[in-house]
């Protein structure tokens, strides 16, 4: 809020379990919450899957959890994977290692996100690791809603796709460091979707 944001998205790696706390915190501050997951596909590429409702994000979260390999997280080595309530009380810990790749291809993931009426946005496509171009060597022709880049101009060939920028904040102080201004009549998920699709950004 202090950063002047009207909306923010939560996109934990391969999990939607902090979305409910995020919703409550955003509600208090009058910010529009967007519920998402940064999914790691079988190609080990990161994709932002964004939704209007917590339930949609949690549905995808459940599917992704099932498709993660049975590799346990070792908190001492990899850090905690807790999920919390709005008061930061720990509700639980995810047992599977969330940095793993889910057994789901980009094409399969796109179908599921479309069924859930979400946005499918390849993450940080200019980065040398865990981006679709870094993993595949190219950007396949797919029905992306937009592409996320950390720099503009983007060094990757992005054709006619809409580019957006996000902070990809892993720490509080990074929130809002990069952002996108959407030209929309209302601060709402459909409004942002329309702005992306009509390139009103």
């Amino acid at each position: 809020m202090g950063r002047g944001l009207d909306s923010a998205a939560i996109t934990d790696h391969n999990s939607a379990l902090n979305c409910r706390a995020f919703a409550a915190c955003c509600r208090k501050l009058g910010i529009l919450p967007i519920f998402g997951i940064e999914v790691t596909s079988i190609e080990e590429a990161h994709v932002l899957c964004l939704f209007e409702n917590v339930e949609q994000a949690e549905t995808l979260g459940g599917i992704i959890y099932e498709k993660l390999p049975d590799i346990p997280n070792i908190p001492e080595k990899f850090g905690d994977q807790v999920y919390v309530d709005e008061e930061e009380n720990i509700l639980g810990e995810v047992d599977k290692y969330l940095v793993s790749a889910a057994d789901i291809s980009l094409d399969e993931l796109l179908l599921i996100v479309r069924e859930l009426n979400g946005l499918f946005i390849p993450a940080h496509i200019d980065k040398p690791v865990f981006s679709i171009p870094s993993q595949l060597g190219f950007l396949p022709e797919m029905d992306y809603d937009a592409l996320e880049t950390t720099v503009i101009p983007c060094p990757v060939q992005t054709g006619d796709w809409t580019l957006i920028q996000n902070s990809d904040a892993h720490y509080l102080e990074d929130i809002g460091k990069r952002y996108t201004i959407y030209d929309t009549k209302s601060v709402s998920f459909p409004g942002i979707r329309t702005a992306i699709h009509t390139k009103n950004i």
């Binding site: 079988i42 190609e43 291809s105 980009l106 094409d107 595949l136 060597g137 190219f138 396949p140």
Partner: peptide
């Protein structure tokens, strides 16, 4: 171990 369609695209190129 990259078992998916994009492997074929890369292989063909």
């Amino acid at each position: 171990i990259q078992a998916h369609k994009n492997t074929i695209a890369v292989a063909s190129l």
